[in-house]
């Protein structure tokens, strides 16, 4: 069992937990992920590692409530445990040789982008972060990003906080201002990553994205996480999760992500009902 030692609601639908997972904490690097199960009948879901403390043997997990499993997770408190946590899985984000990078984070994807930004910053790389949210109420990790970015552009879709607009506009402005990036690293909803890649393609800037498809084992066994990159089938769990965004077949990736939509919605509703009952 993997004990939760800290818990903080970052916004109404995004929660951070710090979990005891010594094996993961010892080896984790930014860009890697864990697979976890909440309880005995639970599904295995992949979540990217948002931070780690090697001495304390803990990892940070930031999740958005999107379905039954994350709903259940959100009802766990400090002292409760996750049933299983395995990792670190996938390959760490490549940071070697990078001198100037733009990090683009969207929504809860910022939680995954943050450790990458931190690592690059610590390595002496110039980090420009463009982070976007739908509105002011769901902004997360602002201070953390500010601390590790040489430049931070915070954006909201509706302009209720920071700069109004989409991250692609913010990124494009930086590029047009004459910033020459070795690489753009984009992490967020697949649709956002797709448009970031379209933007950077115009300027011929290498763009790395982090894919988080449906998977079961996370070790290369099920092949459920496969996607097409440069015309070849790759497994996100062992070949990724980072890929050259200009090579990824986004239409296929978005289609595959909807595989179990109906089931997931039904299960989420059932889980919500369950909790409402218990709360009464």
């Amino acid at each position: 069992m993997y004990k939760i030692v800290e818990r903080k609601e970052l916004n109404p639908t995004v929660t951070k937990i710090v979990v005891e997972a010594p094996y993961v904490a010892r080896k984790a690097e930014p860009g890697q992920f864990v697979i976890l199960r909440v309880d005995e009948d639970g599904e295995r879901i992949p979540l990217t590692i948002a931070g780690f403390n090697r001495e304390a043997g803990t990892v940070d997990i930031i999740f958005q409530i999107v379905g039954a499993t994350t709903e259940k997770m959100n009802h766990l408190n400090v002292g409760d445990s996750l049933h299983d946590v395995v990792g670190p899985l996938g390959n760490p984000t490549e940071t070697e040789g990078l001198k100037k990078v733009a990090i683009v984070g969207g929504g809860v994807g910022c939680a995954i982008a943050l450790p990458v930004a931190k690592k690059l910053h610590d390595l002496g790389c110039e980090v420009h972060s463009v982070v976007g949210f739908r509105n002011k109420d769901i902004v997360i990790l602002e201070d953390e990003f500010r601390a590790c970015s040489d430049k931070l552009v915070l954006m909201t879709d509706d302009g209720s906080y920071g700069v109004k607009g989409l991250v692609t506009a913010g990124l494009e402005e930086l590029i047009q201002a004459g910033n020459e990036y070795d690489e753009v690293i984009a992490i967020g909803p697949v649709i956002m990553m797709k448009f970031v890649c379209q933007t950077t393609a115009k300027y011929n800037i290498k763009t790395i994205i982090s894919m988080n498809p449906i998977m079961i084992d996370g070790t290369g066994m099920c092949g459920g996480c496969r996607l097409t990159v440069g015309g070849e089938t790759k497994f996100a769990c062992v070949d990724g999760p980072d890929f050259d965004g200009h090579q990824v077949d986004f239409a296929e990736a978005m289609s595959r992500a909807t595989m179990y939509k109906a089931f997931e919605r039904k299960r989420h509703e059932e889980t919500c009902n369950l909790f409402k009952k218990e709360v009464q």
């Binding site: 009948d41 639970g42 599904e43 295995r44 039954a68 499993t69 079961i216 084992d217 066994m221 099920c222 092949g223 459920g224 595989m259 179990y260 089931f263 997931e264 299960r267």
Partner: peptide
């Protein structure tokens, strides 16, 4: 893959109503 189909069914018990795995 047969691995995925069988793992969902057997290890994750997706054939049971109580399982969260689709």
């Amino acid at each position: 893959s047969a691995n995925e189909f069988l793992t969902r069914t057997n290890l994750m018990k997706a054939y049971k109503d109580t399982a969260d795995t689709p």
